[in-house]
Design a binder for these strands. Structure first.
Length: 580
RNA sequence: GCGCCCAUAGCUCAACCGGAUAGAGCAACGGCCUUCUAAGCCGUAGGUUGGGGGUUCGAUUCCCUCUGGGCGCGCCA
């Protein structure tokens, strides 16, 4: 739609160039949507931008441009204002064309091909499978899923992946926690209190109960000669001793079943939870498979071949300081075990070999210090470090009223994503999560979200959508005809109607902007604005009037608005109900 | 101490890769339902964009500095 103005303006600038007025000045077209209606529907500051290079005063240049503008069926008039802005006023026909376009394109209105099919890898959530997802993870899930949809709508080939940390010490702690609950469920009391450093959530008992149902007493024997945890002051050391004992006593096969019991149940839960939330992955990538395939060894060998490693204090280090990191990082510990970082080096390198042009990672903001070392590793491995883009998502801080809610997974004190979804509904949750920029802290007041969920702006938007469909139902009930394609919009002359069409026209731009900035909240705010415009119009103007032409034209406008609301809501994973 | 992020109306947040007079919602106050869904609409009030410098025709936006907050600085993940 900007072409209505961009094409004539470009022609004018080219004409001036031929006259020698803009020699050596690179032409750049730039438009603004003025806040003030007096400033037109579109304003261009080209004269201000090009004035310096052309050696002219901005207003004089603007006058020259104005003189060179060809006639256009869409442009009513052009004014020069302020320091040299060119303000374009469009004819109603331009807005009618927008409405027709929305109705013609339907669900594809707003779709565009910015990406050109570029393959893009998007990793998000990737929470450790040591417990159910909590409300904090929900933000990443909603944000990532919405971003994926927006990017797809803009012509990118997006591949969503969840990186499963199924290999680390945290999983061993989970296994040990399950084992202790298993003993309890089997009727064997623990010789000491349940450890503080183990996972104490209720879900661990459930996993243990299922394990007991499958295994019976078969694993109880390993409770003999357990280390005396009560005697070990350091909780982490205590749990590590317990893990070592269990691995030894149970043997690889039985310990593997114990380990898998927790992992598989929790992973299945996470998968279902996210699927119900409308968050779908193309792949779940196992950290353990990375290790079993030798990818970590290969990556480290490659680093060593490049001379980026050294041994010190018994450990193998990566000289990340050569690539701008604060300090060097350990890849392999003194005890021979690889660090989490080593897996991540391999994982990110491996991603790059799968043919993606760009890698987008979404991390919690607490991981920001991690970016330089991952970048450094990609650089050292000869990969394109610029292909990795890390989006940091700030924490969601939970409140219950004015009180901060603890969010410890170990202690099992948290509100799960599932609980939240059940309380406020998927639509409200999805929308609420993307309502603010990712780099803003999200204050999530549970009391407010549950008690006053009807105040959530998602209902405001859905209500506007439902109202349009209500109009259509009303029209049918009264035996009135509905619009046909293409609509006749000539009688839409009211400034409010044209202004609404103006907002519709903005949708594709907003989608592109949201994709470029990786900011789904832009869509959310746009939809609020469009819904507000419709509610105002609805209250001020009767749509189902007797006069056929006017009624059909207004219904067409309403249909176009509903279509755009539905398209936008779909990008955010929110439903667009026809009745409320 | 070093690094990253943030600071806009009483509260929660917008402001289109620098644009013209900084906008919404909530809270407050006052109006609108015998006609298309009042989960709505209209109006009033609310600001030195944390302070100070700089760049620019032009700064909430970019740079510097200070203040205040969040997070990080493990052979944890």
């Amino acid at each position: 739609m900007k072409n209505f103005v961009a094409e004539p303006l470009l022609l004018a600038l080219q004409a001036l160039q031929q006259q020698g007025l803009l020699q050596g000045v690179p032409i750049q077209l730039d438009f603004d949507r003025p806040r003030q209606p007096e400033h037109g529907h579109l304003a261009s500051n080209v004269a201000l931008l090009l004035a310096k290079g052309a050696g002219k005063k901005p207003r004089d240049l603007a006058t020259s441009i104005l003189g060179a503008l060809p006639e256009s069926p869409w442009i009513e008039r052009v004014e020069i204002a302020g320091p040299g802005f060119l303000n374009f006023f469009l004819r109603p026909a331009a807005f009618h064309a927008v409405i027709a376009q929305v109705l013609g394109q339907g669900r594809d209105f707003g779709r565009q091909n910015l990406g050109g099919g570029l393959r893009l890898h998007l990793e998000f959530v990737s929470a450790n499978p040591t417990g159910p997802l909590h409300v904090g993870h929900g933000r990443g899930a909603a944000y990532g899923a919405s971003l994926a949809e927006i990017l797809r709508f803009c012509g990118y080939d997006v591949f969503c992946e969840y990186y499963v940390n199924d290999a680390g010490r945290q999983m061993d702690i989970l296994a040990a926690s399950v084992y202790l609950r298993y003993l309890e469920a089997a009727g064997h009391g623990l010789p000491w209190d349940f450890p503080q450093s183990a996972y104490r959530g209720e879900y661990v008992r459930e996993i243990a109960a299922h394990l007991l149902a499958r295994e019976g007493d078969a694993l109880v024997f390993a409770s003999k000669n357990m280390p005396d945890l009560a005697a070990i002051a350091d909780g982490d050391a205590a749990i590590d001793q317990l893990i070592a004992h269990l691995k030894d006593a149970l043997g690889a096969a039985a310990y593997g079943r114990l380990h898998a019991a927790g992992l598989q149940e929790i992973l299945a839960d996470i998968r279902d939870d996210l699927a119900e939330f409308g968050v779908v992955y193309q792949n779940w990538y196992s950290e353990r498979s990375l290790m079993e395939q030798g990818a970590v060894e290969r990556a480290i060998a490659r680093l060593e071949e490049g001379g980026h490693c050294y041994r010190a204090e018994g450990a193998l280090w990566f000289r990340s300081t050569d690539f701008g990191d604060d300090k060097d990082r350990v890849l392999q510990r003194e005890n021979g075990a690889y660090t989490y970082f080593a897996s991540d080096v391999a994982y990110h390198f491996e991603k790059g070999t799968r043919g993606f042009s760009q890698l987008i990672d979404m991390w919690g903001a607490d991981h920001h210090g991690y970016i330089p070392r991952v970048r450094a590793s990609l650089q050292a491995l000869g990969a394109d470090a610029n292909a990795l883009e890390v989006l940091l998502v700030q924490f969601a801080i939970l409140y219950r009223g004015t009180e901060k809610v603890s969010m410890s997974t170990r202690a099992g004190e948290f509100v799960t994503l599932r609980q939240l979804r059940e309380e406020v509904g998927n639509d409200a949750a999805r929308f609420f999560y993307v309502l603010r920029r990712a780099d803003q802290h999200l204050d999530f007041d549970l009391e407010l979200a549950t008690k006053h969920s009807e105040e959530n702006p998602v209902f405001y938007i859905q209500y506007a959508h439902a109202r349009v469909h209500s109009l259509r139902r009303q029209a049918l009930e009264r035996g009135l005809s509905l619009p046909t394609q293409p609509p006749d919009l000539a009688c839409l002359t009211d400034p409010r109607e044209l202004e609404l069409a103006d907002r519709l026209w903005r949708f594709p731009e907003q989608v592109a902007s949201a994709a470029r900035d990786r900011e789904p909240h832009q869509i959310a705010f746009y939809l609020k604005d469009l819904a507000a415009g419709f509610h105002t119009y609805y209250n001020a103007t009767r749509i189902l009037v007797e006069e056929d032409a006017l009624r059909l034209a207004r219904l067409s406008l309403a249909d176009a608005i509903a279509q755009t609301l539905a398209n936008g809501l779909a990008l955010l994973g929110v439903s667009a109900p026809e009745t409320m």
